[in-house]
Computed example of a mutant assay.
Amino acid sequence: MLEVMICEDNKVHRAKLKQLVENTILREKLDLKIAICTENPKEIINYIENNNRTGIYLLDVDLKNNINGIRLGEKIRELDSFGYIIFTTTHLEMSYLAFKYKVEAMDYVIKDDDDFKERVNSCILKSYNTYHKGRHKEDYITINTDTRVINIRPSDILFIETTGTPHKIRIHEENRQIELYANLKDIQEKLTSNFYRCHKSYIVNKDKIEEIDKKYKKVIMINGEECYVSFRYMRGLL
């Protein structure tokens, strides 16, 4: 899943930028989330190092820190080569530094400009569309709900299960769960051959199985979650 990370030292500007991103996500029904919003560039670096994700980064250039926004962008580029970096600043004259340090920024947006909101919104949408329709297009399935358009990469799915609510399913990934109204049969038709209907209530990604417990008829996934296998489907799974 694509995530948004914000680094801005000014508390007021940080709150406004966060609200701007949240409004864009809601208005455009984007499958995005703000993973971190901070004044500390080291928090951004630590998060990227501990989470193997591609991100959209909104970085203030003039951070009141020993690491400025350009240097932070340089470090981000080392850790996330496909990330989308957008600089925000009041100092247009510093834009040349982004080229000097080979940050490959998407845009350099001036905070005081009248079109600041439109420019940030445009960058987020362009990043999102490029991520899903370009480099990663071949891997994604798209699910439309009443409130969101969700792009899911099958290789991220551990298993899918029915819920206690009629016609509602839950998709399990390692770091999130998604609930939506659908049925397992329709979802299975969109999935690749490594997915197996192991129970009337479960579809499992065989590539994400850590262990099969034949005695208790259950599957343990790589993150420790469990799902069940019915007797009639155990042989096919094995």
Rank of each mutant, 00 (worst) to 15 (best):
K102F: 15
K102W: 14
K102P: 10
V103R: 02
V103W: 10
V103G: 08
V103H: 06
V103Q: 07
E104A: 12
E104T: 11
E104P: 04
E104M: 13
A105R: 05
A105G: 03
A105E: 12
A105Q: 09
M106K: 06
M106W: 10
D107N: 12
D107Q: 07
D107K: 08
D107T: 03
D107R: 11
Y108T: 00
Y108V: 00
Y108N: 00
Y108G: 00
V109M: 03
V109H: 01
V109I: 11
I110P: 01
I110Y: 06
I110N: 00
K111F: 11
K111V: 04
K111G: 03
K111W: 12
D112N: 08
D114E: 13
D114Y: 13
D114W: 12
D115G: 00
D115R: 12
D115W: 09
F116L: 00
F116D: 00
F116P: 00
F116S: 02
K117W: 07
K117R: 09
K117D: 12
K117S: 08
E118L: 09
E118V: 06
E118D: 08
E118N: 07
R119K: 08
R119E: 03
V120P: 00
V120N: 00
V120Q: 02
N121T: 13
S122D: 09
C123V: 10
C123K: 08
C123S: 12
C123F: 13
I124Q: 04
I124F: 08
I124G: 00
I124S: 05
I124M: 05
I124H: 06
L125M: 13
L125F: 12
L125K: 12
L125V: 07
L125S: 07
L125R: 11
K126F: 02
K126A: 02
K126I: 02
S127W: 07
S127F: 07
S127K: 04
S127Y: 10
Y128E: 05
Y128H: 07
Y128T: 05
N129S: 05
N129P: 05
N129C: 03
N129R: 05
T130R: 13
T130F: 14
T130V: 09
H132E: 02
H132W: 13
H132V: 06
H132P: 00
H132D: 01
K133N: 14
K133A: 04
K133I: 05
K133D: 11
K133H: 13
K133Y: 14
G134F: 08
G134N: 08
G134I: 02
G134D: 04
R135G: 11
R135V: 15
R135W: 15
R135L: 15
R135C: 13
R135N: 15
H136G: 09
H136K: 14
H136Y: 15
H136D: 14
H136F: 15
K137D: 01
K137S: 03
E138K: 07
D139A: 13
D139H: 15
Y140W: 15
Y140C: 07
Y140H: 14
Y140R: 14
I141R: 11
I141F: 12
T142Q: 14
T142F: 15
T142D: 06
T142I: 15
T142G: 06
I143G: 02
I143M: 09
I143H: 07
I143P: 01
I143W: 09
N144E: 13
T145V: 02
T145A: 00
T145Q: 03
T145I: 01
D146P: 02
D146Y: 13
D146A: 07
T147W: 08
T147S: 10
T147V: 06
